[in-house]
């Protein structure tokens, strides 16, 4: 078995053992149920039902949570000295981070499936073509990969596992709440409108919502955000991985 195979298996097993996969599934289900039951009577989404409207942001949030777990995993590897031990072995420096990314994608896929399944139970329907579905899944997983690389880099320099995951909590909280994912832009104060409309969570949520309805909405902008984050965070994560231990 290759080093990457062995490390990936270790990472995925850890995900199963430590309840991360359960959390990846339970998180989006809980958020979907909470937001739908609390807000569907008070937020006006026009002709679209609220479950149809909100699935997109639940998916985006699930991808962010995947990244938060990745930060925690990377911090644990870093603090336990695993990273240093790996550097002493005759394997590529990228194997540990690649293994963690594969594990993150497994969690992301499970979270995505859970979000769509719970949405379906509440009346969400995918009206797009197979190509739209593939684009929907592709953008979600690309976002997850990009954020997980950034989170991995953050976890690799963290001095505690708690700090690693918590650092992402506040930007996540603000970006999800102040987005068109939960409510249309007109629900927010007018001076906040430009930020709400153009921040990444809104852009990607609108694209995913459009794809679910069979339309192409701001696909270019979403891809630019995802690929931009992927390039920036990917470069940082790889540089962190190659850096000699202190």
């Amino acid at each position: 078995m290759t080093a990457l195979g062995a490390l990936s298996r270790r990472s995925v097993r850890g995900t199963l053992r430590d309840g991360d996969l359960l959390f990846a599934i339970g998180g989006p289900v809980a958020f979907f149920v909470c937001f739908t039951l609390t807000l569907r009577k008070v937020i006006d989404t026009g002709d679209m039902t609220y479950p149809q409207y909100i699935v997109a942001v639940i998916v985006v949030q699930a991808m962010i949570f995947t990244a938060m777990t990745t930060a925690d995993r990377a911090a644990r590897d870093h603090l336990s000295g695993m990273g240093i031990r790996m550097r002493s072995l005759p394997i590529t420096a990228l194997a540990p981070v690649t293994a963690r990314m594969l594990s993150a994608l497994v969690r992301a896929a499970a979270a995505l499936a859970a979000a769509l399944a719970v949405g379906y139970g509440f009346g969400f329907r995918f009206h797009g073509t197979v190509a739209d579905l593939l684009a929907f899944v592709g953008i979600a997983l690309l976002l997850s990969l990009a954020l997980s690389l950034g989170a991995d880099a953050m976890g690799s320099v963290a001095n505690s596992t708690e700090a690693a995951g918590q650092t992402l909590l506040i930007p996540q909280l603000l970006l999800v709440m102040l987005s068109t994912g939960i409510a249309p832009a007109q629900s927010f104060p007018s001076w906040l409108g430009p930020f709400v409309r153009n921040q990444p969570v809104s852009v990607i949520a609108e694209t995913l919502r459009g794809l679910a309805m069979g339309h192409s909405v701001r696909v270019g902008a979403s891809m630019a955000w995802c690929l931009g984050l992927l390039v920036v965070f990917g470069t940082i994560a790889l540089r962190m991985q190659r850096r000699a231990p202190a």
């Binding site: 918590q166 909590l169 506040i170 909280l173 999800v176 709440m177 409510a183 629900s187 104060p189």
Partner: peptide, 24 residues
Amino acid sequence: MDLVFAVLVPMSGLIGLTFLLRDV
């Protein structure tokens, strides 16, 4: 760091929820 989060989490929760829900 946890004490910093003790301050920031309620503040960001308050900001997010207030702007999101106060008009609806």
